[in-house]
C-alpha cells in the first residue's frame, strides 16, 4: 500500500454509529451554575483576598489595642494609686480626683 493510499484510506474512515447527545448534554449543563465570565471570577477573588486581609488587620489592631488598653489601664491605675499613696503617706490631702491621659479618676474611700 502506498503512502498516499494509506492517507486516503484514513480519510475515508468514519464512525458507523449515529450520535445524538444534545439532550444528554443539555441535561448536564442545565444543572451547572451559570457561567461566570473570567473577569468576574478574578474580581471576586481579589475582593475575597482584600476582605480577608482587612479582617486580619482589624483583628490584629484590636488585639494590640486590647492588650495596650489593659496595660494602660493597669499602668494608669497603678500610677494613680502611687500618687494617692504618696500624698496619703505624707498626710497630705489627696484631693478627690486625679486627671491623667485626659481621663478624670475619682478617689473613693
Amino acid at each position: 500500500m502506498t503512502d498516499d493510499k494509506l492517507i486516503q484510506e484514513l480519510k475515508e474512515m468514519h464512525y458507523q454509529g449515529k450520535v445524538d447527545v444534545v439532550d444528554a448534554v443539555m441535561q448536564q449543563v442545565g444543572n451547572k451554575p451559570l457561567l461566570v465570565p473570567a473577569t468576574h471570577r478574578i474580581t471576586l477573588g481579589k475582593v475575597s483576598i482584600a476582605a480577608a486581609a482587612c479582617a486580619l488587620i482589624a483583628l490584629s489592631i484590636n488585639v494590640v489595642a486590647l492588650f495596650t488598653r489593659d496595660f494602660n489601664e493597669v499602668q494608669i491605675g497603678s500610677d494613680i494609686a502611687a500618687v494617692y499613696n504618696f500624698h496619703a503617706g505624707y498626710g497630705e490631702e489627696t484631693g478627690s480626683s486625679y486627671s491623667m491621659g485626659g481621663v478624670e479618676y475619682l478617689f473613693e474611700e
Binding site: 484514513l10 474512515m13 468514519h14 464512525y15 454509529g17 450520535v19 445524538d20 447527545v21 444534545v22 448534554v25 443539555m26 449543563v29 442545565g30 451559570l34 457561567l35 465570565p37
Partner: peptide
C-alpha cells in the same frame, strides 16, 4: 449569548459539531 446566560443556545453548538466530534473520538 450563552455567556450572557442563554444556556439553551449551547444545543446549537452540540448539534453542529457532534458528528465530527464522534468521528474524531473514533479515529
Amino acid at each position: 449569548d450563552i455567556l450572557a446566560g442563554n444556556v439553551n443556545r449551547f444545543a446549537e453548538i452540540v448539534k453542529q459539531y457532534q458528528d465530527n466530534v464522534a468521528n474524531l473520538c473514533f479515529k
